[in-house]
Design a protein around this nucleic acid. Sequence first.
DNA 1: ACCTGAACACCGTTCAAGT
DNA 2: ACCTGAACACCGTTCAAGT
Lengths: 197, 197
Amino acid sequence: MSPPDGGPTRAAVVAAASALLESGGPDAVTLRAVGAAAGVSRSTPYRHFQDKADLLAALALQTLNDLGAAISEASSRGGDGALPRACFAYVRYAVEHSHHYMLVFGDTPMAEPSAAIEEAADAGMGALGVLVERAQADGELGDGPPREMATMLWALLHGLAQLQITGHLREPRTVQGDDGLRQLVTLALTALRPTQP
Amino acid sequence: MSPPDGGPTRAAVVAAASALLESGGPDAVTLRAVGAAAGVSRSTPYRHFQDKADLLAALALQTLNDLGAAISEASSRGGDGALPRACFAYVRYAVEHSHHYMLVFGDTPMAEPSAAIEEAADAGMGALGVLVERAQADGELGDGPPREMATMLWALLHGLAQLQITGHLREPRTVQGDDGLRQLVTLALTALRPTQP
DNA sequence: ACCTGAACACCGTTCAAGT
DNA sequence: ACCTGAACACCGTTCAAGT
C-alpha cells in the first residue's frame, strides 16, 4: 500500500506542509501548494497519506513531540521552580508556534487520533502530573488529587494560550508579551499555593 | 447598500445558518445550504452580509449574548454559590453548544470583531469579574487583583470546555458527563480558596 | 513501484439580467 | 430595491496513463 514511513518523499511532504503552516497559516496548507513546495505533483501526497487529514495528523504528532521536549527542557534543571518554568514553557511554545498549536488543539478536522498521538499526549500530561506531585510534596502547591490537579492546570495553561492566540485577551484584559503571560501563570500558581501570604 | 438590519430575510439567513451549524457542524454551513434552508438563492446572503465571515460574526454575536444570559441566570439567585454556579453554567453551555462555542473561540476565520462583539465579550467578562470580587469579599476566593483573577478563571473555564469539546480529555484523564466537569470546576475553586481544609 | 496530468464534485464569490 | 441563474477561480480527491 503505502511506501515505507521513513521515505524521503514523505518527510519532504511533511516538512513542506509544516513550513507552509508556519508561514501562511492553515489556509496556505493546500495539497497543491504542499506538493509544489516539496517538489512533487499535486496528488503525490496521496501515495504517503490517506488524505489531507492524515497528513495533518502526522504534523500534529511532530508538534506534540516538540511541545513535550520544550516542557522537558524547561523542567530538567529541577528545583523549586521546575513547575512554573514548565508551565510558562507550555504557554510560550503555544503562542510562538500558534498555527501548529491550533492544529493540535483547535477545531481543524483531523484524522482520528492515532496510537502515536495518544501516546505523545499521555507522555506530556504524565510529565506535568509528576511535576505537580513534586510541587505538592514540596509544599508549593495545595493538596488535591494529583491527576485532577494536573488536568486542571493543563486546562488553565491551554485556556491562557488559546485566548491569547485567538486575540480574546485585549483592551480591558490586555496581556502584553512574555511578561504579561508569565505574570498570569505566576498568579495562578501563587493562588494555588496552600496558604496565601 | 445593505437592507435594514431587522429585515426578515436577514433574520432567516442567520437562523438557517445557526440551525445548520448545530445539526451538521461547521462543514454543513455553506452559503448554498444556508440559502436553500432560508428559502432564498445562493447569492442572496451577500445582500445582507459582506461575505461568509461577516455572517458567521453575526452568529458569533448571538452566541456570546446567549452565553452571557446563561451565566447571568445561573448567578442571579446570588448567595455563596453564585460564582461556582456561573462557572459551571459557562462550561455547560460551551459543551452543549459546542459548534457555536467553537465558532466564537475556535480558529475559524471570522470577520474582525465588531464593536458589538467586543461589547458582548466585555459584558460577560465584567459579570465574571463582579462575581470574583464578591467571592473574595466573602472569603470564598483567595486574594489577588480581581481583574487578573477573573481572566485566569476565564482561561481555566475556557480550557476545560475546549479540551472537553475537542476530545482531549479521555482515558487516563476521562471527565465523564456533567458530574465530571462539575467536579473539576469545584476542585479548581476549592484549590483557589484562601485556606485549604 | 512511484509519479504525472486530466478530470470530477464542491465551495466562496461575482455579476449581468430579470421583476 | 431585491433577487436570480450562470460563470469564475479554487480546493480535495480520484484515476488512467506513463517511466
